[in-house]
Each structure stands twice: as structure tokens, then as C-alpha cells.
Design a protein around this nucleic acid. Structure first.
Lengths: 225, 225
DNA sequence: CGCGGGCGTTAAGAACGCGTCAAAAACCGG
DNA sequence: CCGGTTTTTGACGCGTTCTTAACGCCCGCG
């Protein structure tokens, strides 16, 4: 869930934005002035800040700098002022985007999507998973740790990836066969037995008693972190 | 040096932007239509793309998607159309920002700074990398050290560059072929075999047993520092 | 208690991908 | 137009990986 902090001193704008954002399944915090905005951000770091520049207590650029001092959270500025100078100041202070009022809600939402999309990869949680003594990094395609060096073949990676991307979830045999081998292999469960065994031999501490790559008899397999 | 690809079919706009950008010490490439824009980006990946939406040969959103298919390079859209719908479409296709014409140059420059600032952290650039007895300097495009003099061809540089920019990370064959040769060579893995062999012959201490330019059978290649 | 399905294991041949050599074709500067 | 460099293309041996088959075991069920 993406958490958005809306900062504006006009209650009706805050209200309208909150309703629209919540309807899109965003989590919304609000603040009516710069000081409480900084406090709210400190208290619970949002994933994005929508900031009106016309606040009663502080310069808008100071609010931006106050945030930028300690966080890289994306900031979208709302402002009634369309002068080039204001935009340049806000953007150079650290804002990610600048929208002039009056603005279309659809456009703001699209800009929110664009900015969060860009910011995501930076602070994304580590895509590394631990299995026994080994650590699997899906992004780099590496297996580290463990005493012996481990190398996985393409098919092994594909299979492992599907399991690791859905922790604790049961993946049916059909789903795995479909995704790794294709639609015409849906009944070749022997492939799964073969390759699950290989994965366990390479990753599990005791392949005969797997603790992470589990079998659900008659159904499929499951990865337990 | 930040390299910017300017795409617009109006020569005077291209010219004005080029002058302004070069004055700010940006490196500028230009393209007049969608097809040559995609080709230019493939040939030498820019750090940012400024894209006019009113191109003669392609839909603007298709150009965006054409880039997004294989790179996360920041894209700022220029457009004469101010309708909310156009903005939403472009942003959701993968654009990072949308500026309506006529626009102030100062504003565009500020938005360029904002977008590149956000994109920067992703690619930290270690200036020099050591492979065996040789030292490769990506910025200067030089190979020093080693007893024998080493000269790399353009294709060899491109290939090596992609590997060195992502240390320890597996780069798939498709990604390398896409970035070095272009989208229509995705299956020509023999090119990779050929040029990886040449790089190893020129850089590795023992080309038959590479220690830094590693093969991941069936998947791709990896640079280990 | 005997039976059968599903699972893990082992073992084999087949198919594929990689590194390599070699040579033709395209490119480039003089 | 020529000579050298660079890129593209084809072919082959070899090791790895994939595919396929067969066997034993556990467990639920009749």
C-alpha cells in the first residue's frame, strides 16, 4: 500500500484529494501547514508527498528542503503560481514535479503514478531470499553463502523463481509446468519431481527433509521462507 | 557528462534546445522522427530523452513504449496538446514528465535537473575497473596496464561497458544483444560468443579460464570484479 | 494385508549451448 | 582504388543440460 501525505491549507482541496486517492487504494495522511507536514513525515514516512506551496507558516521551498534534508521521498508540488521562476525554485529545491492549479485530477493521479514508478526501484526491499545456509538473489541470479559453490541451470532458475515470488503460497503442479515448460507439458509431473529434487539437493541443508521447498502431495509445491 | 537525446520534427526547436543544452554542458544527440529516435537510443543509450509527441511517423506513446521495452532511461515529453487525456496516456506509457508548449526554457531545464537527479542514484559509476593485469577506464575509454598494448573496437567497448556497469549481476543474452546490436538481433547468440571470446583474449590473464568475464550457460554473462 | 497412486531417486541417451577456428563481407582512411 | 581493420557468417567438437524411462518407497484405501 502506497502512503501519500497531502499538505494543503485549504480543507476542501485536502478533502477532495483524500477521497480521490483513497478511491484508488492509496493510504492518505494530511497536514494543513509546513510544520505539521514535517512532523507527520517524521512520524510516519510516506511514500510520496503532495505539497501545496501556499502554506500559511512556511515558504514552500523550505518545506521541500526540510524533507530533502533527511529523506528522498518523492514530492509533487501543487501551486497556483505559474511563473517559471517559482517552478524552477521548487524543482531545484528537490521537488520531483510541479503542477499548477487548477489541475485535473486525472493528470495529478497520472503524475503520482509516474513519480512513484520511478522512485520504487531505489528503495525496494532486498530481493534476496534465504534458504538454509544459502542466499538466493533473484535480481543478480546468484546463490551465495553455503560452503560449496552452487550453480543453477536455466530451468532450475525458472522453477525456483516462480516459487520464491510467492512465499508461503501453494503453487499447483499445473501452474509450474505451464510457466516453465509450456502448455503442452501440463501432465509431465515427472519433470517437477526431477527438478525439485535437484533444487533441494543444491539448496536445502538436508535434501531428504526439506525445510523450505515443500511438497503438497497431489497438489503442488510451496516455498516457506 | 549527461547525454540528452532530443527528438522533435521541427528543426528550429531542435536547434534552440541543442544550443541551450550544450551551453549547460550537456551532451546532445538529436532525432527528427520516432524510428531514428529509437535507433539513436539503441546505438548510444542517452541519460535522458526529450521527446516531442507530434512526430510524423509514429504515435508518441509508441515511441515511449519502444524505449520502455528495454530501458529505464528518463523521458520528458514535450507536446502542444494540453488535454488531460494526452498527459495521462503519455505518463502511463512510461514518461517521467510532461511539458506543454509553449514552455519556458528555464522550466524545462529545471525539470531536466529534477528528473536526472532522481534517476542518478541508480547508476553509480566506478571510473576504473580492474580485469586481471589490465585496468579499464570507462570514462576515458582506455585500457592500461598489462605488458602488451590493448585496443578495443567499438563493438567490444559497448559489450564490455554493459557488463562492467552492473558488477556481479547476470546480464541476459537478450539484454546484451538488444543493447549492442539492436532489437532484431535478439537470437544471434553467436555474436556474443564471438565477442566475449575476443574480450577474454584481450583482457583475461588466461582466456581459457576467465576469472572476471564469466559465462552463465543458457542465460547470459556476468562481470565479477 | 495386499494393492495402487504419487513421490523421490537413479541412470541413460538425446539435444543443446558454448568456445573455437576459419573465412567472407563490410567498413574506413589514405 | 587499395590495404588494413572490423564485423558478420558458417561450421565443428565437446561438455553440460534436458529429456525420458525405470525402479523402490511410503501411505492411504479397500
Amino acid at each position: 500500500m502506497t502512503r501519500i501525505l497531502v499538505v494543503d491549507d485549504e480543507p476542501q482541496i485536502v478533502r477532495a484529494l483524500s477521497i480521490n486517492l483513497r478511491a484508488r487504494h492509496y493510504d492518505v495522511d494530511t497536514a494543513a501547514d509546513g510544520a505539521s507536514a514535517l512532523r507527520a513525515a517524521t512520524h510516519h514516512l510516506p511514500d510520496l508527498v503532495v505539497l501545496d506551496l501556499g502554506l500559511p507558516d512556511m515558504e514552500g521551498t523550505d518545506v521541500i528542503r526540510g524533507l530533502r534534508g533527511w529523506t528522498g521521498v518523492p514530492i509533487i508540488v501543487l501551486s497556483g503560481r505559474a511563473e517559471s521562476r517559482d517552478k524552477v525554485d521548487a524543482l531545484d529545491a528537490g521537488a520531483d514535479d510541479y503542477v499548477t492549479k487548477p489541475f485535473g485530477v486525472d493528470e495529478l493521479l497520472a503524475r503520482i503514478r509516474a513519480v512513484t514508478r520511478r522512485a520504487q526501484p531505489a528503495d525496494e526491499a532486498p530481493p534476496a531470499v534465504v534458504i538454509g545456509t544459502h542466499t538466493v538473489d533473484l535480481a543478480a541470479h546468484t546463490v551465495t553463502g553455503g560452503d560449496s559453490e552452487v550453480h543453477l541451470t536455466p530451468t532450475e532458475w525458472q522453477l525456483l523463481e516462480h516459487l520464491l515470488r510467492h512465499p508461503d503460497k501453494l503453487i499447483t503442479q499445473r501452474a509450474l509446468l505451464q510457466d516453465v515448460w509450456g502448455p503442452q507439458y501440463l501432465t509431465e509431473t515427472n519433470y517437477l519431481r526431477q527438478y525439485m529434487a535437484r533444487l533441494r539437493r543444491k539448496l536445502e541443508f538436508d535434501p531428504a527433509h526439506p525445510r523450505h521447498l515443500l511438497t503438497e502431495p497431489g497438489m503442488g509445491y510451496r516455498f516457506r521462507p
